[in-house]
Amino acid sequence: MNTKTRKITTIGMLCALAYVMVAIGRIPIVLFLKYDPKDIIIAIGGLIFGPLTSFVVALIVSLIELFTISDNGIIGFAMNIISSCSFACMAAFVYKKRKKLSGAIIGLLCGWACMVTVMMLWNYLIAPLYMGYPREAVVKLLLPAFLPFNLIKGGLNASITMLLYKPIVTALRRTHLIEAPSNSEKARINIGAILVAVMVVVTCVLFTLSLKGII
């Protein structure tokens, strides 16, 4: 199997996995807003192959969603692409410039910040169309609903991507779908980064439970 075929096969697998995650993994967070983990897979694809791959996977998965499980039609399709790409493409772009563990962490944090900022703007612009609310009502929801939702979503995406990237890449290398790194490219497992990622996940979960009034 040549390199191009391996890449196409891997991207196809990532698309399938991302779609399964959104189809069965939706979790209500705030009001009608639901978290799904597909952006984790989209980001991992970008970290492996570059930001263009993140865009392609986000486009394909969002298109499949549009014709299968979406409730918001073409507006939801556009919002899915914007949300996924603002996180995953930014993370992949930064990592492409600095292919080290620190570059991956910085990239994921930049993706988190970018997604929160972009989605606050687009929710202000687009949410009145698919929610059927006047813009004044949407503005009142930006801080108590949309902001915490996007903070939780971005935090979970960044931290879980950090935790899953190494195992997924290792599995893909063992199946020869991606090339093994040279000795100079091999990254050591950083316990500190793993602990930070776990802490972010726990914080996001506790924040979600507090918003729901469970704790």
Results as ranks from 00 to 15, higher is better:
Y95M: 09
S54R: 06
V57P: 05
I69Y: 07
I74G: 00
A92S: 14
I60F: 11
R98A: 13
I74P: 00
G50M: 02
C114I: 12
A92E: 09
L66R: 09
F55P: 03
K97D: 00
V116L: 13
I105K: 12
A58W: 06
I64C: 11
C85Y: 03
M115D: 11
I126N: 04
I106H: 08
F77S: 00
W112C: 11
S83M: 07
L121M: 12
S70N: 10
I60P: 06
D71T: 14
I81T: 05
I64T: 12
N80V: 03
S86V: 02
T68G: 07
S102P: 03
I74W: 10
L108K: 03
M119S: 09
M79F: 02
C89M: 15
A78V: 14
A104F: 02
C114M: 15
C85F: 10
F87T: 07
F87M: 10
A78W: 02
D71P: 00
Y95R: 10
F55V: 12
C89W: 05
L66G: 12
I82F: 07
I74E: 08
V57K: 05
F67C: 00
G111F: 02
V94Y: 10
I75E: 03
M119Q: 12
F55K: 03
S102C: 01
I64A: 13
L101V: 10
F93K: 12
A127F: 01
M119A: 09
L109I: 15
L121W: 06
P128M: 07
D71Y: 01
L59A: 13
G111P: 10
K96W: 01
S102Q: 11
V116A: 11
I60E: 04
L121P: 01
A104W: 03
I69G: 05
S62N: 12
K96E: 14
L63S: 15
L52W: 10
K97E: 06
M90R: 08
V61N: 09
W122G: 01
M115A: 09
F77M: 08
P128K: 02
